[in-house]
Structure formats: C-alpha cells, structure tokens
C-alpha cells in the first residue's frame, strides 16, 4: 500500500507545479469493496476505481509535499465535494467544513442549516459541500503529509 501510494504520488506530481511552487498536492480516490471469502469473513479492499455505482463508499486521499527549500506557511488545503458524493467522515483529521458552498466554515457540530420554515437545524454530514484543512504551523521543507476523507456516491 505504501509503495503503491508513493508510486502514484510520483506519477501524479505535475513537474511544472513543482518547479514553480515547490509544493505539490496529489489527489487519489479509492473505493471500498466488501468481499466475503470462503470462510464467510468479510474483507474490505481499497481499489482504485475507474467506475463506481450509487452507494459505493469512496476514500479520498490527499498527499502533499513541500519539495522546496523554504517552509510553506499558512498552508490550507481545500476540497470542494463533488455534487454526486455525500460526505461521510474524515477519520481523525478533523477538517473545517462548509455546508453553504464555501461561504461559512467551522466544525460540523457548530454549523446549522436553514430549513424551509425559517428555523435552523444542526448540520449533518450529508450537508457538507466543502472540506478544508488549515495548518497552524508551517510545513517544513521536504515534509510530506496525507489527509483523507470518505464519502458515498449518491
């Protein structure tokens, strides 16, 4: 898995972006496939899909790398959620989220959604439209990291 990811990362890094910015961001999407073996045990495989169907659980993995000589400060990664994907969770990476198309941001449990009758209800994962990770400390030169979140194909 680790080797595979590094290979993917290397393949996906845009060379020009590296030269210009010294920071690279690679985006991979996997699908969780549940299979049952002959003993009846369920196994969950992560596959790199070309095609998906509604109900598939997707794992989005973002790899970043500061390939430059300078620390990267005020480092923020933003991922607008595709319309056809319903946010599920972000593991323990605790991103900021938006439920209004990127206008307001916060932890999911701090946000509310307007209802047709004018009242507001607590936001649910399905309301999420954007995810954002804002780093408090600069990314040192040469450092790499990985973020993930999961969603379901609507």
């Amino acid at each position: 898995m680790r080797n595979t990811l590094f290979l993917l990362l290397a393949a996906l890094l845009p060379g020009q972006a590296l030269a210009a910015n010294h920071v690279a961001l690679a985006n991979d999407v996997f699908v969780e496939r549940v299979t049952t073996d002959t003993q009846g045990k369920q196994r969950i495989l992560l596959e790199e899909p070309k095609v998906v169907v509604p109900g598939d659980r997707l794992v989005f993995v973002l790899n970043y790398r500061n390939a430059g000589a300078q620390p990267a400060d005020k480092f923020v990664i933003t991922n607008p959620l595709p319309d056809a994907v319903r946010f599920a969770d972000a593991g323990d990476t605790r991103p900021l989220v938006s439920v209004d198309g990127g206008q307001a941001w916060g932890q999911l449990d701090e946000l509310t959604v307007a209802q047709p009758d004018g009242t507001r209800r607590p936001a649910q994962p399905a309301d999420v439209t954007h995810l954002r990770w804002a780093f408090q400390k600069p990314i040192p030169a040469g450092a790499t990291g990985k973020l993930m979140f999961r969603g379901v194909v609507k």
């Binding site: 690679a26 985006n27 095609v51 990267a72």
Partner: peptide
C-alpha cells in the same frame, strides 16, 4: 464524478494557490 483539491501557502513571496490533479470517476 470529478474531484480536485487545492492548496494555498506562503513560502515568503506571498500566497500561492495550486490545484491537485483531477480524478474522474464514471458512474
């Protein structure tokens, strides 16, 4: 389904924003 993330940062010369690669999935 297309997914693209972006990153913004400052390496001393002001804020720079880059996009990730785009992943396309056919439904």
């Amino acid at each position: 389904i297309s997914n693209t993330a972006s990153a913004s940062f400052d390496t001393g010369g002001g804020t720079t924003t880059i996009d990730s690669n785009r992943v396309d999935l056919l439904v």
